[in-house]
Simulated assay, not measured.
Amino acid sequence: MLTDVLFVLIVIACLAVVGVLGLGLGGFGKGSGWAKNNSNNLMRYRILTQAIAVGLIVLYVVVKRNGG
């Protein structure tokens, strides 16, 4: 049961990473003033969401290894 919930959270976290990365790349490709103002924040959000996703993946592996 716990592994199913963790798996769903991993998928959501990975989609969040892709979404933030897509926003950053879209703004960068557009070249607008919005990208200049928000690119640093989007990079921080991407790193944060990636860290959460990696942490959840590690937790999933630990739980699966311990028979959960």
Rank of each mutant, 00 (worst) to 15 (best):
M43C: 10
G31W: 07
Q50Y: 07
L21M: 06
L6F: 03
G55A: 14
K30Q: 11
L42S: 13
N66Y: 04
V63F: 08
L56I: 08
T3L: 09
L2Q: 08
A35T: 10
Y45A: 12
L42D: 02
L9W: 04
D4M: 10
G22S: 15
V17W: 01
V61N: 05
I10L: 14
G26S: 08
D4T: 10
L23H: 04
Y60C: 11
M43I: 14
N37H: 03
G24H: 09
L6Q: 15
L59H: 02
K64G: 00
L25V: 13
G29R: 13
A16I: 12
G31C: 15
L25N: 01
I52T: 04
I10N: 07
L2N: 05
M1Y: 13
G68W: 13
N66E: 10
L25R: 11
R65D: 03
S39H: 05
T49C: 14
G26E: 01
T49D: 08
N38A: 09
N41V: 01
L59T: 06
Q50I: 05
G68T: 15
G67P: 00
Q50T: 08
L59W: 12
V20T: 08
G67F: 09
V54P: 01
I52Q: 01
G68P: 00
N66K: 01
K36E: 08
G55L: 11
G24K: 05
R46H: 06
L25D: 04
G33Q: 10
G29K: 04
F28W: 11
N66R: 01
L6S: 10
G19I: 07
N41A: 15
N40G: 09
L25F: 15
G33K: 15
L23R: 03
V61D: 07
I57T: 12
V63W: 01
N37Q: 15
L21S: 08
V61G: 08
A16G: 12
L15A: 11
G19H: 04
V63D: 09
Y45P: 00
G29E: 01
C14F: 09
A13Q: 03
I57Y: 00
C14Y: 14
L6P: 02
Y60I: 00
Q50L: 14
L23W: 10
D4C: 09
K36S: 04
V61T: 11
